[in-house]
Design a protein around this nucleic acid. Structure first.
Length: 467
DNA sequence: TCAGTATGTCATTGT
DNA sequence: TAACAATGACATACT
């Protein structure tokens, strides 16, 4: 009841220039002037600015016009500059529509798995990768072509018989048959950390097949575990240096297949020492590592020692020989590793039907295929991981830049808000200075406040009734 | 000798 | 169910 009375008492009267209680409205009274008070252009503009402040525009007045305190919003002067805070309504504004920063989210996260064929994703076609491989020497080319023809006959026209591998069989036989007696020792590289060997060990490494310590035949038909094959391979490697130059030139063609363009889908070696890369990469970060991956991967047969990776052949440059290649040689696998790994499964199975392989050979071939594919997969996986790191680093930088931008913008908004609040305080004081009650006395700014309803009417409300 | 990195390999999972 | 890609984990080599 009191509120109603107060409201009625304070409601702007129809009399022009009078606010509450019928006091004459001063000519300079700013505002919408619903009652047709004389306009002062300057003050009116100021008043409009005042009313434009969102904080002053949220009145909710009942339809019947009755006063309900909470529905009013105070127009009391705000604290002047300093100590002001960004109003909640401001923080809720859609900054995205005002932020001019456009450096963020400009690129999508790479969809690493959108294709199971990952190579193209890295921007290197097989052709491009092959460009990094060792060129076929002009001298080697004719023989390769001849061997291509031979191989095509053997494989009954396999779709893309790799010339560089086709020489393997006969020369490989020569190679192994030339083996002098060698003594078995443990393979010092012993390789794969786990090296559990998916090929079932048919004989314990501690109990070499054949029962003759220090010697082991490599005839096809014998079954070997991986480690045993490694032993054989190691011995042949050591014996290798004693071979005649004639043999060297022959075996080299087999070994050389590694560096031929069609050898592998992997990026080929530039014969950069792997650990040169390591040192550089440590300094240059993921991007450098990623770049170098294309150059370096495929060089080493793994973390094994370089002397083993690069089988030295007199009169020729180093050629990387993987462990599986040596195993294949040791077991006289009659087709190149390249085919074992890269042929489609149907072609691979067809290839197998053309040869009569022992169980150990078959197991080795399947292991080589599995390891070869997994090796490529691991390289791709690591490359993707590095790309992901690079992408995340870029995104982080962009987000940091955006954060700085937004912080700067926030400061500007706060500064503007403080300025507007300060101006509102001045206007509020000025409005009050022009208000007079029925007795012509000014209203105390400490006792009254101005409040506005959505319909634009201004009320002078005692503080005790104000919200 | 130790730390960090590169690589191959195995096991596992999902397709 | 086989084949394979992806990936974590591990071992090894190397700087």
């Amino acid at each position: 009841m009191l509120l109603r009375l107060t409201l009625r008492a304070c409601e702007v009267l129809p009399t022009p220039g009078r606010v509450c209680g019928g006091a004459p409205m001063p000519p300079s009274f700013p505002g919408p002037r619903p009652h047709g008070a004389p306009q002062d252009a300057e003050i009116d503009v100021a008043w409009q600015e005042l009313m434009a402040i969102s904080e002053l525009q949220h009145f909710e007045v009942p339809a019947d016009g009755s006063y309900v305190a909470p529905q009013y919003q105070t127009m009391e002067p705000m604290n002047p500059m300093g100590g002001y805070e960004m109003a909640q309504s401001h923080t809720a504004c859609d900054l995205s529509s005002t932020v001019t920063y456009n450096g963020c989210y400009s690129e999508e996260v790479p969809k690493y798995r959108q294709s199971s064929r990952v190579e193209p994703m890295f921007g290197h076609s097989e052709y491009q990768l092959n460009q990094r491989m060792h060129p076929i020497s002009s001298q080697a080319l004719p023989s390769l072509i001849r061997e291509q023809i031979n191989m095509s006959g053997n494989s009954q026209g396999h779709r893309t018989a790799n010339a560089c591998f086709s020489q393997g069989i006969s020369q490989h036989m020569i190679w192994t048959n030339h083996r002098p007696d060698v003594h078995l020792t443990d393979d010092p590289e012993s390789d794969s950390g786990l090296s559990l060997g998916s090929t079932p060990p048919l004989a314990s490494p501690d109990n070499p097949v054949g029962g003759v310590p220090g010697y082991q035949s490599v005839d096809i038909g014998m079954a070997y575990s991986d480690s045993e094959v490694d032993n054989i391979v190691e011995q042949t490697r050591r014996a290798h240096v004693n071979y005649s130059m004639e043999y060297q030139s022959q075996s080299q063609s087999y070994l050389h297949s590694v560096s031929e363009p069609n050898f592998s889908p992997q990026p080929s070696a530039s014969l950069t020492q792997p650990n040169e890369l390591t040192a550089q990469s440590m300094k240059q970060g993921p991007a450098a590592i990623l770049n170098n991956l294309f150059i370096d991967s495929g060089v080493s047969s793994r973390g094994s020692s370089l002397h083993d990776i690069y089988t030295k052949t007199p009169g020729s440059s180093s050629s990387p020989v993987s462990r599986d290649q040596r195993r294949a040689m040791a077991l006289k696998i009659p087709f190149p590793i390249d085919k074992i790994i890269n042929l489609p499964v149907d072609d691979f199975n067809e290839l197998l039907t053309h040869y009569t392989l022992t169980d150990s050979q078959l197991a080795l071939v399947r292991d080589i295929r599995r390891r070869g594919k997994n090796k490529v997969a691991a390289q791709n996986c690591r490359r993707r991981k590095l790309e992901s790191i690079i992408h995340l680093e870029r995104e982080l930088n962009q987000l940091q830049a955006q954060r700085e931008h937004l912080a700067k913008e926030k400061m500007e908004f706060q500064h503007n808000l403080g300025f507007i609040k300060h101006r509102l305080t001045d206007l509020y004081t000025e409005v009050f200075s022009h208000l007079r009650d029925e007795d012509g006395q000014p209203y105390s700014i400490d006792e009254y406040s101005l409040q506005q309803t959505p319909d634009g009417k201004i009320y002078l409300v005692p503080h005790r009734y104000a919200k």
